[in-house]
Design a protein around this nucleic acid. Structure first.
Length: 295
DNA sequence: ACCCGCACCTGTAAGC
DNA sequence: TGCTTACAGGTGCGGG
């Protein structure tokens, strides 16, 4: 579910509630949801800590305490972090079997419950002694964040790769934060066929620059809209992200292209459903220019 | 070294 | 209605 815009929206939404707040209770309901060998203590999950900041790189999130304790959060496909205000003296009882970890938090904006719900359990929690350890261990092998990547970095990561560009974009070692939705949207924006080889894409400096600019714009707009709710994604208050109504290709196979009217096509690429416009994203750029000049 | 294909899970919707 | 199947936003691994 959540790609960079969804994760960033969650981070921004939680920040005012969590920063400067103290964790007063922690309840881990599924031990194996914390990817750590041996015993997990409440202290590992920030019990008693004062939260200092929330970090994000790609789709990875980290909750960092003042004393350095850090919890890495990954939402996987179906993960949801929710915030519910709690009145004084009120207690919570979990009945939802998919809520795997619960934190009660006392902060400048009042008391509340932070819950991590994840039915498919592809997500998880990781514990570290410092934010540096998080960056070193959890982010090892991750590429640059998709909001900050430079055309140069992207070209460098792609120029010896023979994979289809779509497959490379989904690879978090190349670029951190892009998943199936935003890969399709960004390729459409740049007019690139998803099956184009990565090294050919990397050779075209002008194309890469255009792609990076478009990608950043799409991600920024998506963050502002609260992300994309396609099925299950929700913001921290349970609200839907409104960016899906602005998807131009993702989820629109068989419908007309907003630019040229051709019917959007669907194919399997890197085991993922891929939607593109056969006209605006033609395989050869010559065909592409012809399509442009034809209007 | 690179890249593919699959496994990891559950929920939902469509098809029969 | 009920059963079966396909599919879903992600990642990490084995092995070709």
């Amino acid at each position: 579910m959540p790609e960079l815009p969804e994760v960033e929206h969650v981070r921004l939404s939680l920040e005012p509630m969590l920063v400067e707040a103290r964790v007063t209770h922690v309840r881990l309901r599924r031990r194996d949801f914390v990817r750590q060998r041996g015993r997990v203590s409440p202290d590992d999950l920030l019990h008693g800590a004062v939260i200092d900041r929330l970090l994000r790189h790609g789709k990875d999130l980290a909750i960092v305490a003042r004393d350095g304790r850090t919890v890495g959060v990954h939402l996987g496909m179906s993960g949801w972090l929710s915030w519910q205000p709690l009145s004084a003296g009120e207690r919570t009882r979990e009945r939802d079997p998919h809520v795997h970890c619960v934190w009660v938090i006392d902060g400048p904006r009042g008391r509340g419950v932070l819950r991590f719900r994840d039915p498919r359990r592809f997500g998880g929690l990781w514990t570290f002694g410092s934010p540096e350890a998080w960056a070193q261990e959890k982010l090892a092998g991750r590429g640059p964040d998709a909001l900050a990547v430079t055309p140069r970095q992207l070209a460098g990561a792609l120029d010896r790769s023979r994979r289809p560009i779509k497959a490379a974009l989904l690879d978090q070692a190349v670029l951190a934060g892009v998943g199936n939705i935003y890969a399709d949207e960004a390729l459409f924006h740049a007019g690139v066929h998803p099956g184009m080889s990565a090294h050919r894409f990397a050779k075209d400096a002008e194309l890469i620059r255009r792609f990076c600019t478009g990608l950043r714009a799409i991600l920024r707009r998506a963050i502002k809209s609260g992300g994309s709710t396609v099925r299950t994604y929700r913001g921290v208050r349970g609200e839907e992200g409104m960016f899906a109504v602005r998807h131009l290709v993702y989820g629109r196979a068989g419908r007309p292209c907003v630019r040229c009217g051709s019917l959007l096509r669907s194919m399997q690429l890197a085991q993922r459903t891929t939607v593109f416009c056969p006209q605006c994203q033609a395989r050869s750029r010559r065909a592409n220019r012809q399509a442009d000049s034809a209007g």
